[in-house]
């Protein structure tokens, strides 16, 4: 049949668009959950601009009438916050770099090399994730004291440089990289170290970003570790340093909140910078966000 001979199409009926109540309900729930999550942050920022006595005033005054910007100046003078920030940076950066190195290195072996008892060893290592830190916190402290490492950042670096979770995360990602790439590289003449450095690392940016965010945020926000190991003011991190605003008789909540806002900034920067890879990483490592 030629095109000319085809019958003209009948006028098409467009069905009436119906209100999608399911979608509306989903949006309402999502907006409510978002507000619930954001409220404490907004409250913290609001409180950081208030006098101590106004912090807990009810009803909550979300936008202070006379914002106390001085809070953000006082926090640097009342306690050595600059030193604490430096300490925290030092600790976080060293731990993050070491964790990335050790995790991706071990993960490469577990994912791409063949050696006896590989899977048993991996399972045993991964099983340590299930052990709560509180269980071995004290013996670990005793051990570190034995090494003379209490009141040093080195103690925390030693404890946090290795993580079963990081190895697990990186290994799962490496498993998704075809073995043939490593084999092609071996035939091309590369050593295993070379393959790890020049093939696996560049290809695992999403996983590395994910691990960087996890490690950075965890180490930066760590409270219990520094609380146990660091008692001298010179080595304190920001999270336990802020506690110096709380004394026996007074709690300077305005300043605490101002310092908390400051301590949040690096975490936000790291997260925003790596967020694009992070989302990709969460998807590709099969982790739920």
């Amino acid at each position: 049949m030629s095109i000319d001979a085809m019958p003209a199409p009948a006028a098409l009926k467009r069905p009436r668009r119906r209100v999608n109540w399911g979608l509306i309900t989903t949006y309402v729930i999502v907006i409510l959950v978002t507000l619930t999550m954001l409220a404490p942050f907004i409250w913290m920022i609001s409180a950081s601009l208030k006098l101590d006595r106004d912090v807990f005033a009810f009803p909550i005054q979300w936008i202070p009438e006379n914002p106390r910007w001085e809070n953000f100046v006082e926090i640097w003078t009342k306690i050595p916050l600059g030193l604490f920030v430096m300490n925290t940076f030092q600790l976080t950066i060293i731990v993050t770099i070491l964790q990335l190195l050790t995790s991706s290195f071990a993960a490469y072996a577990f994912a791409k090399l063949r050696f006896p008892y590989r899977n048993a060893l991996f399972l045993a290592y991964i099983a340590t994730i299930a052990m709560p830190w509180q269980v071995y916190m004290v013996p670990q402290f005793v051990m570190m004291r034995g090494f003379g490492l209490t009141n040093t950042l080195t103690a925390l670096v030693c404890l946090q440089a290795f993580t079963a979770f990081g190895v697990f995360l990186m290994r799962q990602f490496y498993m998704s990289i075809p073995d043939e790439l490593c084999e092609a590289a071996r035939i091309d003449g590369m050593s295993e170290y070379g393959i790890w450095w020049r093939i696996m690392l560049p290809l695992s940016m999403p996983a590395i970003s994910t691990l960087t965010i996890f490690t950075f945020v965890t180490t930066w926000n760590d409270f219990l570790g520094p609380l146990i190991y660091l008692t001298k003011t010179e080595v304190k991190t920001i999270q336990i340093g802020i506690r110096m605003f709380i004394s026996q008789y007074t709690q300077e909540y305005g300043l605490i909140m101002a310092a908390s806002v400051v301590s949040l900034i690096p975490v936000l920067i790291v997260f925003l910078a790596l967020q694009r890879f992070f989302v990709e990483g969460i998807a590709s490592t099969g982790l739920k966000g």
Binding site: P178, E180, L181, E183, A184, A185
Partner: peptide, 8 residues
């Protein structure tokens, strides 16, 4: 290789 194994 079957799947070419080019470095992406």
């Amino acid at each position: 290789f079957q799947n070419y194994a080019l470095y992406p």
